[in-house]
Design a protein around this nucleic acid. Structure first.
Lengths: 339, 339
DNA sequence: CTGTTAGCGCATTCAT
DNA sequence: ATGAATGCGCTAACAG
């Protein structure tokens, strides 16, 4: 009969025989409202049975919030970001927030997309997952809405949610030094990427503290990047070569592993390898890669949580999440070869 | 001075000295409006210099559209969906549409999330990427807004955008039969998944047409699923075993490859393998897997395009996208072994 | 050529 | 304990 698409406040009011504003205040749990219990009951019941939701746009226009947030990251093709976004989506459901997703590649100055989201008033807050330095654009970082940086420690930013990369590097180095390795290389992403930077610093420091020969190699975050970096390492004279190599991402690791194969270098007997980021795939390779598990999903959740708190008037501080970072032992690491 | 956050129509009107509605009509390119060129010029210039964008919520409330669409899929962890979503995001930018993303796992009856998006009036349309049968829930499929099914042929749906799975299976079989294979197995996903179903039908038909012994094995879309399915195949007596196996997804393929290794079955000399979905990773494995490249990104683009057209009053028909599906030859396929 | 009017659906302040 | 009035920012129909 009623072909009404979506019930409005006014529809409920009409049905109950009361003024719309009363319905509004009842449903929003206005504490200053006094109302007869049975009226309240009738309103709530009618709303439920009509499936009332409330128009998000009208609320946003009237009130101060849209009930939506934006999530910006470089690329969903990168499994790391895909997993982080998953965490964000999961937590957003708990906060009753919708998530607008935009890809803004690091190499593109054009951040039109997220700027639009902000300036059109579509979102209450922003989760920023780009990895490039902060000085990319005129409108960066955005000041119109609260934002939280994800997986990135931006100086002077209100809130950065990160993982303990230092601990990850620590686990990686501990594991290798326990096996006798003292010449260790880390193949990581471009030096401009914040996580890469933090890992580099951590590794350098550890190297000095323990008198290790550490080295960082920067390479693109893909198979070819990992492959070429490893190939270059293996072209060195044996004495110059690391006895163990860490690789920052899954894709790079697969490339690097391919390079050892081509070069006839046996893993782990000639060279130990660790991937700084776990993935089920690693357990099914010809050489099963030992990895450091990073809590990516949890990072996404924590970031969304921090943003939720900010939007609720809270003031969450920047923090490294506590979730476990663990070494997942497989078969790509062994004692340092005697030469 | 002006701490005005976001310029409104009224701000521009005030600055130019004209009525807000004139500004609105000018900026919206209303064809019925006649206006003096210099006034138009001043309005446009002022709008540009003030960085006017227009409030999305107000527009949505007033007009009939929100300028946003929803994208629902089972999981971003699945690289297939991640890539499709990337295509969707890219095309959405061209249509000036924001994209709200929600994960709704196939095994969960609860589709609260997207229902909310619709009923709260947040979106103009919906891209539906779930793979389970249509009869999941009371509110399914949604009728309030136009929707387009992505990678899924739903009977009687207004618009399904799919890939030519038949052609993919054709390429796969052609390649193998050219190498002399006549006993071919396809390890695919759960039988309830639509793409799996279409590939199964195509393979069965091809088998009959060409007098091949074909078989479909259903397994979960992950490494373990692929592994276990392949292990089961290899436990058979040699005569019963296929000489070539296709695997539907990257993750399953890596599991399957691991099973051949454990079992001491050499690929491709004992068994040929093809992955029905290309990925850069495949070129860096110990055994480089031949694959059929599927145009996933393009699928996402096409689906978003179809939805865009529907929202613009068009009536795009269901279609299979034309983008190239190609065999990417690597080293996991060879002539059938003589036994 | 441009201004006026009205109202989208809701939340809030004030009045009864 | 409830109703009425107002306006968020914008667009569309109608007046001048």
């Amino acid at each position: 009969m009623d072909a009404k698409q979506t019930p409005r406040l006014i529809d409920i009011a009409a049905k109950v025989g009361v003024h719309p504003s009363v319905v509004s205040r009842t449903l929003r749990q206005d504490p200053t409202l006094s109302i007869r219990p049975d009226t309240r009951e009738r309103i709530e019941q009618t709303a439920r049975q009509m499936g009332y939701r409330g128009n998000a746009q009208a609320r946003a226009l009237r009130g101060a919030s849209t009930g939506a947030v934006g999530m910006v990251m470089p690329s969903l093709r990168n499994p790391v970001w895909a997993e982080i976004v998953r965490g964000v989506l999961a937590e957003a459901v708990r906060w009753n927030l919708a998530v607008l997703v935009a890809e803004v590649p690091d190499d593109r100055g054009n951040d039109e997309e997220y700027v639009r989201l902000v300036e059109e008033g579509r979102i209450d807050g922003l989760l920023l997952g780009s990895s490039e330095p902060a000085e990319r654009s005129s409108a960066w970082p955005p000041t119109q809405v609260p934002s939280v940086h994800v997986n990135r420690a931006v100086k002077d930013a209100a809130c950065n949610i990160t993982m303990d990369e230092t601990r990850a590097v620590g686990l990686f180095v501990d594991h290798l030094t326990a096996l006798g390795h003292r010449r260790i290389t880390l193949i990581d992403g471009p030096a401009t990427v914040d996580t890469t930077h933090r890992r580099s610093v951590a590794l350098q420091r550890l190297g000095e503290e323990r008198g290790l020969e550490v080295q960082i190699v920067n390479a693109p975050y893909n198979e070819q990047g990992g492959h070429d970096a490893m190939a270059r390492l293996l072209r060195r004279a044996a004495k110059q070569r690391p006895t163990a190599v860490g690789v920052a991402s899954l894709n790079q690791a697969l490339g690097a592993l391919a390079a050892t194969r081509t070069r006839g270098v046996a893993v782990p007997s000639d060279l130990s390898m660790i991937c700084l980021d776990d993935d089920p795939i690693l357990g099914f390779l010809d050489i099963q890669l030992t990895a450091v598990r990073m809590p990516l999903f949890e990072l996404g959740e924590a970031a969304m949580q921090a943003l939720g708190e900010r939007l609720s008037g809270g003031n969450p501080l920047s923090r490294e999440i506590e979730d476990p970072i663990e070494l997942v032992g497989r078969s790509s690491t062994a004692s340092v070869p005697v030469r």
